[in-house]
């Protein structure tokens, strides 16, 4: 019981998630900066930013709904932390798992986006309202391909649990090759989920300042920031758990392998962010429905055929 609680709170649960999230932000910023020929921040910069924001005054707009305004960042962080419980980090199994936890994880991952939408909506500022609308529009675009891309491998693995899928693919590593298109779709849609360039229209600073978060400050903003960092870790972990399930069977080695895999995913995401311009929201929707969704559907069909053909 106590061990389980420790696992959830300290390692590999919440504490690890936040620390790793800050590290991820540093890596992301550093790589981004180096690609842009800049020096980039020192390693403690994300933590320093976080601490500084914590110490700042929190201003709540007079028109905003106070309770919701304050609850949203916490809910958003909690949802990401809850989702992280179901992803294997240390060893083969996640902290908790059950048949169908993949669906739960995906829904937990939708909560931060919804929180962002509500945060903008309840801020009662034109910029944030517009940002919220864009957040929601964008969500309808990437959510479908992302879900389908993550569910397709489950068809072959014949399990709806993340741990189960990891275990299956660790045993049959060659099957991952079939899932490569889904992997690419998941990475691109994941970039949309994380609202990073080229899909950062909701918070496009040159158009609508900071989008939904424009009215947030101080502690609440710090919580949102850390939630976004954790979401980044979460997406990287989920993608690497499903599409890069290489295992050695040794817990420590597996953990190191986990770090390597997630960092590799992060580097790809950072590269994508550095070499592209921001798309317009309607271009983003077009792209997701025109290219990503058909590829994901095709992947599902292929996987069904493979499953039938191999008699799995």
């Amino acid at each position: 019981m106590i061990l389980g609680l420790l696992k959830i709170i300290v390692f590999p649960g919440f504490m690890f998630l936040t620390v790793y999230g800050l590290l991820f932000e540093y890596l992301d910023r550093k790589v981004h900066a180096r690609l842009q020929n800049r020096i980039g921040p020192p390693w403690y910069q994300p933590l320093a930013d976080f601490l500084k924001l914590i110490g700042k005054e929190t201003i709540i707009p007079a028109d905003a709904n106070k309770t919701i305004f304050q609850i949203l960042p916490v809910v958003s962080l909690a949802a990401v932390a809850a989702a992280f419980v179901y992803v294997p980090v240390f060893g083969k199994a996640s902290i908790a798992s059950f048949q169908g936890d993949l669906i739960v994880v995906l829904y937990f991952l939708s909560i931060p986006t919804m929180c962002l939408f509500l945060a903008g909506w309840y801020s009662r500022s034109v910029y944030s309202t517009l940002g919220s609308v864009r957040t929601l529009t964008q969500m309808f675009a990437y959510e479908v391909p992302l879900f389908m891309a993550l569910l397709a491998p489950a068809l072959i693995a014949k399990t709806w649990s993340v741990t189960g899928m990891t275990a299956f693919y660790a045993e049959h590593p060659l099957y991952i090759l079939i899932n490569i298109p889904a992997f690419i779709v998941a990475l691109i849609a994941g970039q949309g989920k994380l609202e990073r360039v080229p899909f950062d229209t909701p918070e496009a600073e040159t158009e609508i300042v900071a989008g939904p978060l424009v009215e947030y400050s101080g502690r609440l903003l710090a919580l949102f920031r850390i939630a976004v960092d954790c979401e980044l870790v979460m997406v990287a972990s989920l993608v690497s758990a499903i599409f890069l399930p290489f295992m050695t069977g040794h817990a420590i080695l597996d953990f190191i392998l986990y770090l390597v895999k997630t960092v590799a995913v992060l580097l790809f995401l950072a590269l994508m962010r550095s070499v592209m311009a921001r798309l317009r929201v309607e271009q983003m929707v077009h792209f997701c429905w025109k290219y990503l969704t058909p590829i994901a559907i095709l992947q599902i069909i292929v996987n069904l055929l493979v499953r039938g053909g191999l008699g799995l």
Partner: peptide, 16 residues
């Protein structure tokens, strides 16, 4: 211009 369309890498290169 690159910055306006969210292409910060080009922004940094041009200004370098």
């Amino acid at each position: 211009a690159a910055h306006e369309i969210g292409f910060d890498t080009m922004f940094m290169y041009a200004w370098r």
